[in-house]
């Protein structure tokens, strides 16, 4: 059965190319022009993934996200502008899975979409292994190796890596990482992250100065690449 994608955007030109592109890739497409329609379709149409523009005419995109999360766990990809960073982060913290900045090329958009769909297919808790780009991680046995050689990590470094592995391919905000590794009291202490991510890169990246595995999403968070 084809996956069903809901595209929520009030700009007709965006709908105009997303619809045929998604259809050509073998997805069923639902469209909504405003928040009310979107929530209705999420509840009744059971989409497998939601593409959500944050600037909607009738209500804030974040509000749509918040309400949708109460009854749907479908992955959400947010469409947003580069200058609305705070909005982007807030959406990710509210449970969006990824974001794409306008303007975007359809290829990148499709890749994100596929990653999100695949990720959703498995429960986060089930992700216990990561194996890509020369790095392999076994969360259950707490083993990390690079190119076959074992890598020694401190407990905090391992916890940090574990968070990224569980969300491999997706962006994880600073807040989310800090809350999971250091606890809710430290969600503002991004300087911890800089230090530990640097240490982690030095241990697992082939060339830490040009990181390929742990990528920085400037001002937003980090993303572990090369997974799935």
């Amino acid at each position: 059965m084809n996956k069903r994608i809901l595209v929520v955007d009030d700009e007709a030109p965006i709908q105009r190319f997303l619809k045929p592109a998604l259809a050509a890739s073998g997805y069923d497409v639902l469209t909504a022009e405003n928040g009310r329609q979107a929530l209705h379709l999420i509840a009744t149409g059971a989409p497998d993934l939601i593409v959500l523009d944050l600037g909607l005419p009738d209500m804030d995109g974040k509000e749509v996200l918040e309400q949708a999360r109460q009854f749907s766990q479908a992955p959400v990809i947010v469409l947003s502008a580069r200058d609305r960073e705070a909005e982007k982060i807030a959406a990710l913290d509210l449970g969006a899975d990824d974001y794409v900045e306008k303007p975007f090329a359809i290829g990148e958009f499709m890749a994100r979409l596929r990653a999100a769909l695949r990720h959703a297919a498995r429960n986060e808790k089930e992700i216990l292994r990561f194996d890509a780009g020369g790095l392999s991680v076994d969360l259950e046995r707490r083993l990390v190796s690079r190119e076959g050689a074992s890598v020694k990590l401190t407990p905090k470094e391992f916890d940090l890596l574990a968070v990224l592995v569980r969300h491999a391919g997706k962006v994880v905000t600073h807040r989310q990482i800090l809350a999971q590794v250091w606890g809710p009291a430290h969600v503002e202490d991004t300087q911890y992250l800089r230090v530990f991510v640097g240490q982690l890169r030095a241990k697992i990246e082939p060339s830490p100065d040009a990181p390929r595995l742990i990528q920085t999403e400037a001002g937003v968070g980090y993303r572990l690449c090369g997974g799935e």
Partner: peptide
Amino acid sequence: ASITGAVTT
């Protein structure tokens, strides 16, 4: 965004 999207599609 529309132009880029349409062209890449």
